[in-house]
Simulated scan of single mutants.
Amino acid sequence: MTASAELTMSIADQLFAIEQIKQVKSKYAYSADRHRWDDFASVFAPDAVFDESDFPNPLQPYTKDPVPSTVSDYFKQSAEKAEWPLVGRDAILAAHVDLPDDHVMVHHIMDPYIVLTSDSTATARFRFESYHWFPVGRPVKYMHNIGAYHETYVRLDDGNWYIHTFKLERQRVECV
């Protein structure tokens, strides 16, 4: 943690703010995995900027071999449907709310690195793994992502912390 001229909170309040930010990220993952989209959207600031455009070429599990073209074409077509970044809580919700219930996800969030930059702003990096099982009939059955979330947080007038900017960095994507 680095000191800032704009940071006037006590050490105890700083630690509490960091814990609150961890709780926001936990709510993000838990609500996404359970398709609770209103809860998911509620972790974002009203004017949040959300960017999941980073998508490296998917590989076959445990190899450096590319996936079949039917799989890579499916992801290219899916990516073209969104205009990145999404801006605003409502746009973030709209992009997720139609995800089929039989698209199962499990997110593991770890290794938080959070720096308070003022009494009401912070930067954060969380490493992650996510597992996705796609609905029957899709060219992709399973996807495993490994990477990091790069985010900024803001504490609004209600006293709560929210994700303000969200940038997903996938280091490896494996698909079947």
Rank of each mutant, 00 (worst) to 15 (best):
M1R: 14
A3C: 01
A3K: 11
S4D: 12
A12C: 05
D13R: 13
F16L: 14
F16S: 14
A17Y: 08
I21A: 05
Q23E: 09
V24L: 07
K25Y: 01
K25N: 03
S26A: 13
Y30A: 05
Y30N: 06
Y30M: 08
A32C: 08
A32E: 02
R34F: 00
H35V: 04
D38N: 13
D39E: 15
A41L: 02
A41M: 00
F44N: 09
A45P: 10
D47K: 06
A48D: 09
V49A: 05
D51W: 04
F55V: 13
P56Y: 01
P58L: 12
P58G: 07
P58H: 07
P61K: 15
P61N: 11
P61E: 07
Y62M: 12
K64T: 15
K64F: 10
D65C: 00
P66Q: 00
V67C: 14
P68C: 12
S69M: 07
S69W: 02
Y74D: 05
F75R: 13
K76M: 10
Q77D: 03
S78I: 11
A79G: 02
E80H: 08
K81F: 10
E83H: 11
E83G: 04
W84S: 02
P85Y: 03
P85R: 03
G88C: 02
R89H: 09
D90N: 04
I92L: 01
H96M: 14
V97I: 13
V97N: 02
L99S: 11
D101P: 07
D101A: 12
D101N: 11
V106E: 13
V106H: 15
H107L: 05
H108Y: 09
H108E: 10
I109G: 04
D111E: 14
P112M: 04
P112H: 06
Y113K: 14
Y113A: 12
V115L: 09
L116C: 08
S120L: 00
T121S: 12
T123Y: 01
A124N: 06
R125P: 00
F126S: 15
S130L: 03
S130P: 02
Y131M: 04
P135Q: 06
P135N: 09
V136C: 13
V140T: 08
N145C: 13
I146S: 07
G147W: 01
G147P: 09
A148I: 00
A148F: 00
Y149C: 03
E151T: 09
T152M: 00
R155H: 06
L156M: 07
D157N: 15
D158Q: 10
Y162V: 03
H164F: 01
H164Q: 14
H164I: 03
H164W: 10
T165G: 05
F166H: 13
K167M: 11
K167D: 08
K167R: 15
R170T: 01
Q171S: 11
E174A: 06
C175N: 11
C175T: 11
C175W: 05
V176Y: 11
